[in-house]
Design a binder for these strands. Sequence first.
DNA 1: CTGGGGAGGGGGCCC
DNA 2: GGGGCCCCCTCCCCA
Length: 639
Amino acid sequence: MLDAMEVPSHSRQLLLQLNSQRTKGFLCDVIIVVQNALFRAHKNILAASSVYLKSLVVHDNLINLDHEMVSPSIFRLILDFIYTGRLGDAEPTSEQLFGAVLAAASYLQIADLVSLCKKKLKRNGKYCHVRTAGYPGYGSLGRGLRATTPVIQSCFNSTPRPVDIPPGEPVNPINTHCGELYASVSQGNQLHQHGLCPPERHCSPLCGLDLSKKSPNRPSNQLHLDTTESREPSIPIRPDSPPVSASVLTNSSSYKDQNHSYPKLDNNSTPQAPHPEPFRNSVSNSHLRTESRDLMFDWMKPEPIGNYVDESDREKDLDREEKGESSPLSQQPRYPSIESNEPDDDKSTSEETGSSGDPSPSSNLERYHCNHLYDPETYGDNLYVCIPCGKGFPSSEQLNAHVEAHNEEELYHKDSMEPPMPFLDKTSQSLGDIIRPYRCSSCEKSYKDPATLRQHEKTHWLTRPYPCSICGKKFTQRGTMTRHMRSHLGLKPFACDACGMRFTRQYRLTEHMRIHSGEKPYECQVCGGKFAQQRNLISHMKMHTTGPDGKPKLDFSDSVYAMAKFTADHLGLKQEKAAEILSQTSHFLNDPKTIESLYPLAKFTAEQFGLTQEKAAEVLTQSQHLGGDSRIIERFSSP
DNA sequence: CTGGGGAGGGGGCCC
DNA sequence: GGGGCCCCCTCCCCA
């Protein structure tokens, strides 16, 4: 039918339009996660191009590709091919590139691209006899092509660009022998037989950003890779860090265009392998990944990983350090300023790093283990390097912003980065101090354990450590960011069995189910009104506590409610629990300490409702639970 | 038109 | 990292 098109240019125009839409993100309905890079595309186009991709996009708006099988940069080329029918303008001699594309295209089952690569390789006479080639100059495609393989924000500039291989990259010995070159179906099955892939999806990703939570058919041991975080190495801010300074470095071997900069191609340079082969073994902490890697080495060499450390591995390694354990990574030469006693907490943000200029994980990650001195190959186009943390930036502005962030965080964490110590002032120890001994140095809040305290302390940071990869909004907790991402992607994993309505959170579903059950567990203590959702009770309570003039009004029940809330806030309890404790207090009034502990409640009540403390105490003790205990009134009358 | 309730959704944050 | 809860905003419906 298409052969008989009356307008011959129709298909071409259509494809041009679609590609234009893709580059703008217009109507894109799927995000493809490849290692740490995100790509947007149209499900229809992917499904029409690849049976494999079709099987993935049918289920999800977010799909993960195994980066062992296809690197971000290669996938970028493939995506360009899908939308343009062209394989970029790769140099005729870059048969190693075609080999990698061929392998990935085979994995993704894109027959046309497989044929094209074979053709190009045959034309170069390399197709069948390059088995052991350790292509000089051909290194990490992930790095070499990172300028052409931006993360999702940068995908909008996606016209096919020349593929340059940077000099001095570690060798990536792609095995392009005819028989072993690409992942045939049988090879995929081989992986299935080894239990590495779920049968529902061929070679399902071994790691990726799983935002769908309940997505069917997902391997249970799938790693949850925070794309943002893995793109951003941590910036540890330590009290003992050297003074922040920055140096501007230049690199005459790089050139830039308006938006991007590319490492200059230099095929003559000697490949570097910053770390010897044995280090490879320390790279993955996932036995799953390790096993699969071993398997896949039979037919395809992955991206060079000698200098690559997965961020999750790195975090775990540092976690082990926190616990005083040794680890393979910790035995490696360490980039000095990267050390941190809180690796998870000190992630930088894309804004401060200008990471769109350097989304490459390898370039970032290798800094953990590579030479501290500036090296063009190490920093690529990020020529502006922050000395304390070793981060590179594409512009001086971004570097300056980053340095400012250092200063701000140092200011904020000069004290809080001290190892949290339990609050153990015996002289003024209250019940709250015993229950929650870890007190925030920036505010009066206290916590049961140091991890929670650390988590809380992030809320005081000026720079939130977890930015959204899509909109850039920053969060203090990774989980919040992940949840937020779900809203971008329209992922609602929690479905109501009764009406089919879907929710982004389990808790919402629980709330919603009360509509069907008629359950209204939240009761107003003032009027007895019942509510299915607590928030609506709270909203309702405002009606009781706020008068027509907007000023607070007081009745007895309100004060009990306020006291319960106060108790809840200060003891970190649920309001329900606090009210329960409050109601039981009268049993313990023989203990002078208990009376003492009630003092803040009366003080709060007095302040909240404009009463004298004595009057507040009277209100308090008139509670049927407290029985008008004279000891309380006596205590509160004398502040 | 307004006030109040029901409910969806997002962010903060503690456990 | 995930679950759960709290708070807020918002929209819709209804009296």
